[in-house]
Nucleic acid binder design. Sequence first.
DNA 1: GTGGTCTAGACCACC
DNA 2: GTGGTCTAGACCACC
Lengths: 125, 125, 125, 125
Amino acid sequence: MFFSIDSSNGVPIYEQLVRQVKFAVADGVLSTGQMIPSVRQLAQQLAINPNTIARAYGQLQTELVVEPLRGRGLVVRKDALNRCLKARNQLLAQRLKAAIEECSQAGLTRSEITTMFEAQLAGID
Amino acid sequence: MFFSIDSSNGVPIYEQLVRQVKFAVADGVLSTGQMIPSVRQLAQQLAINPNTIARAYGQLQTELVVEPLRGRGLVVRKDALNRCLKARNQLLAQRLKAAIEECSQAGLTRSEITTMFEAQLAGID
Amino acid sequence: MFFSIDSSNGVPIYEQLVRQVKFAVADGVLSTGQMIPSVRQLAQQLAINPNTIARAYGQLQTELVVEPLRGRGLVVRKDALNRCLKARNQLLAQRLKAAIEECSQAGLTRSEITTMFEAQLAGID
Amino acid sequence: MFFSIDSSNGVPIYEQLVRQVKFAVADGVLSTGQMIPSVRQLAQQLAINPNTIARAYGQLQTELVVEPLRGRGLVVRKDALNRCLKARNQLLAQRLKAAIEECSQAGLTRSEITTMFEAQLAGID
DNA sequence: GTGGTCTAGACCACC
DNA sequence: GTGGTCTAGACCACC
């Protein structure tokens, strides 16, 4: 399990964690029935306050991504994959949409936006 | 002069103002030598504390977008247009880039990202 | 950490703070990764309103001198030293330049300016 | 009589005027008994509020540089030259001293300051 | 009238 | 605990 948090980019740590778990499920890196690291273990590994991990895990439970296995820990729910795929795509589509809307409201035309998009896409890894 | 602030989107009011002034200059809505609304006037019009306006105006000065006419008010600097155009494009390009990077890191291929982009672009006004 | 503010010299307190932090980094008194005093602590120590400290700290962030460790405090960025050295030298050079220009515009010759400079330099501590 | 004011450099206009009159006297451009422009005339010429001119002229009177000629206007006092020469040199020396002190307090050695000074002096017109 | 600074105090998210 | 934002209101120099 790889988690990487960036504590100086403004995105709350617990959100980064929630997101990374969801994306891991969507990518098949984490699959149904698999356990996620314990709060303490992950807190130690990332040198992060356990409260922060707990907050992320709480959210993953309420979003029905993981469920507790009594006394054992948290496992990925059997119905989590679809949910995570959908969540991932919605999230990404929405980010793109927000960026596009900003361009549009700033007065850029569709073709200017497309040009800008292609330039940026070309610059990715 | 149109300014609209959305106090429920998490973006600080003073940042929204800074951005709107820059974009107005970039769009030619505000041009060199033109005065921007006084702190008190804008505060009243937007029902916002004058301090918040002052903070935005201070930032616009340090970013060399406006300059004071002592005791008269703030005017758009003669060299502000290029600065604002550049600032606007950088900001928008960077937003697109961030969105693209997210998609990429989530495992989408270039063509998947492009498809998603086109779908979202089509949905704009 | 020594900060001393002079509230009777016309220079805004927050600017004095920004400058002192930058100079401390340039001098190696503050180094990469080191935390700067918390807003509340410094406010109490200097008997100054926390808002004023926060304003200075905000500026230090936008000038990329410090960065937040979420919920922990502000630390000196790893790339801050060069920035601060440059900022310090620019600032000092510019002060000297301004003084020299005033002399020049007042009609003093180069050698008169140099004489005056040497007289003043001799009088320093 | 040449006066040039820069309303966007932070130095109060009335101070710029006071200074320019003093320096003109020190340089011999204005000499004893000569009249300075009337408030209204100068206000119009510089497109400045007459109050601002009046404030500068008031200060020049209290500093014994000019005196009123009943019903005629303000003339340079016969004892103004020495006063203005001394004022000019004090002012310039003090500016240099302040700049030097800043360098010194920032940790620069005498020779570093001298080097910086010479670099800046070389760059003057 | 103009903008700039500061205090006082509240509230927020985050850790 | 941490910093960030905002309101409310005072005071200032300047024009």
